[in-house]
Design a protein around this nucleic acid. Structure first.
Lengths: 214, 214, 214, 214
DNA sequence: TATGAATGAGAGTTCATTCAT
DNA sequence: CATGAATGAACTCTCATTCAT
């Protein structure tokens, strides 16, 4: 995953650690700049400066701009997935886990608005031949969906959720979350996104149809 | 809406028609190229070539690249909204209208895969001060959401749908549709998207929760 | 001088006159636009519009933009030379003629400020191989200098002016006039240029040195 | 005055010197190309090539084409003013200083014919709001006139020159010098310009009028 | 290893000029 | 003759990437 140095002999653990350290700093700067300006508007130079390195240095750690972007992207998603996972594990039952996941994701979107803008707008270009840099990203996204899937499947096992393709359910739920966030941002809505967690959970579980009189 | 030629006196109907014709050709080419490559990667030259015109010609019809993009975008969305609207009007009751809208949109996504890529990915950057070219686009998107809203509200009036913020419902539904499409495309799923219409309708109406024994 | 039509057979006097008429209109528009915007900033289209013709029409009367510029330039200079000449002929003696010429030129500069800006700034590029369009212009400028020369020579014949190279004197005088105008314009001096006529005449005739006590 | 690199921390003296060096090379190339072709006809690419750099490099040293032009212009004028000043300081009395200034300027025109073309032709467009790049240029030109003024005023103090607006006198003299040069160049006169120094001095001091019998 | 000056391909855009109508 | 839509070469300027130090 790490951009290979010219020289292939193994780095000392010390070197290795330092390298990871620097890579991390760059990633963090990259995330901030990409989030603030978007992919095309963010220049390598500005990222380097933000990270406190020279321009050329970036290329010692990342193949090119796309790879850096993909790496930053992946790192962020990974972090989000982790946060969501933590929350689901704290829940007592599958329904609570689901609501936890929903809430966690909305909170994450909220805490990382700028990133979300990019996340929502500049994604890997189609399935295409796929520039291999995106592979990692796609894997992260897959893990994200998979996480929701497993929560849903847990609910299905306990007969709390309908028996139907959990993948489709996960994708649908995710779509709701993403678009609700996008909408809130486009309309600059002031109230916290997480306030919509209950609504989303409710709709996802019980639907929009009026309940028949019992 | 049409980029004015320097000269403001009215064109002969003949000229007028030809102008619209050419404008349309350019828009079509632009849509294809933008969809295939994305905004930044699409060059004006490639669009001009695709349209069978010289580079400079584009600028006789559109202020600049952004305006062209916005126009292509808006044209497409307008078309989609129209198709959905038609379908909802053919339906007998609000629930059928809802399913019609869902199906129509998925079919549209399917028929215009390439466009969808940008539709989903390169949207106006934030609500911001907005580079006025986007105003049209935003209006179209708003009309799209509004259309879904009105269908939902019709259902609410007939007590077929729950009484809750129709906007939120519309946004949620839209999110499901968008993300399901995205997912299908990213995974190059072969079966037609419209096959998922029933599923989406069902989930949207009745939710994912297991139904209590009646 | 007139840009040849495809067809070389002589035009009817009627046609001929109309042609000259149109050419004149274009020249006038060109002068105005060039003066207002400068050579490079003035577009053929704007000139055509100002003249009330189509863009292409310009090319029926002038080879290209440079030729048009040169023609407009020459026309203006010709006009200026004519005005100066008239004034010198009204004068009783060579000294008065000289002052008349000076005053006439300053007045012309003043009345045609915008033109002067261009006149002073965008002149034929060097002596170079000389793009033949400029020949006319150079001839006009030569006639201008020659006019001053003849006035000076008249003064010399009457022993009112020193016997020395009249050409050099003329060029020096012209330089004073041009630069005084330029200076006044650059400093946006409000008082009329022609007020400097007496000063220039005095300096040109008697020099800047203090006069010895007689 | 030097176009700042993004990074504002001070460069090492070494770097600093090299930077100045390169900047100088570019300026020199720019001067040559601008002089040969004029502002609009000179392309950045041609200047870069003449300087032996890549196109982009120019922009590391100058904001844009205008700034480069202004810088080249200003550098040259500064040099001219310096040469003239030196010469005036070597002179024993104001009259000799005046003649020195005249001779020095003519010599400079001669040595830098190509530059003179633009000096004389492409000056800042009007005083206008002024595209701030020109400020430097205007200051230089002002210093030039001021230098002549001070020489003239010295002469006036010693009663060697008439008591009259020194500014007007300076402008007049400058006009003579500029136009004499222009005329010589347009007519490709072979003899050195500096040969006209005595003539100009004489005319400027004593005028063109025939001297009354003493 | 880190740097950042240099690069140059490539972008969007303009406009003098042409030519089918 | 007159037109003005179409053209495309040419422009300025940017920025990802390289490489000598």
């Amino acid at each position: 995953m790490i951009h290979p140095t010219q020289n292939n002999r193994p780095l000392s653990p010390r070197r290795q650690r330092e390298r990871e350290q620097r890579r991390g700093e760059i990633l963090q700067a990259a995330e901030a700049v990409f989030a603030a300006r978007g992919f095309h508007e963010a220049s390598i130079e500005s990222i380097a400066e933000a990270a406190g390195f020279g321009t050329g240095t970036i290329y010692l750690y990342f193949q090119d701009k796309e790879a850096l972007y993909a790496a930053a992207f992946a790192a962020k998603i990974t972090q989000m997935v982790a946060e969501i996972e933590t929350r689901t594990q704290q829940a007592g039952d599958p329904i609570a886990a689901l609501e936890g996941a929903i809430r966690a994701q909305l909170e994450f979107h909220e805490k990382h608005r700028a990133f979300f803008e990019i996340f929502a707008h500049h994604r890997p270009a189609g399935p295409g031949p796929g520039s291999e840099e995106w592979t990692t990203v796609r894997e992260c996204l897959t893990r994200h969906t998979a996480l929701l899937c497993s929560v849903i499947e847990a609910g299905q096992k306990r007969k709390l959720l309908r028996k139907c393709d959990s993948g489709r359910l996960a994708v649908s739920l995710l779509g709701m979350l993403l678009h609700i966030t996008r909408d809130a941002m486009e309309r600059r809505m002031p109230e916290p996104l997480s306030e919509q967690a209950a609504f989303v959970t409710d709709i996802f579980l019980h639907g929009a149809a009026a309940r028949k009189a019992a």
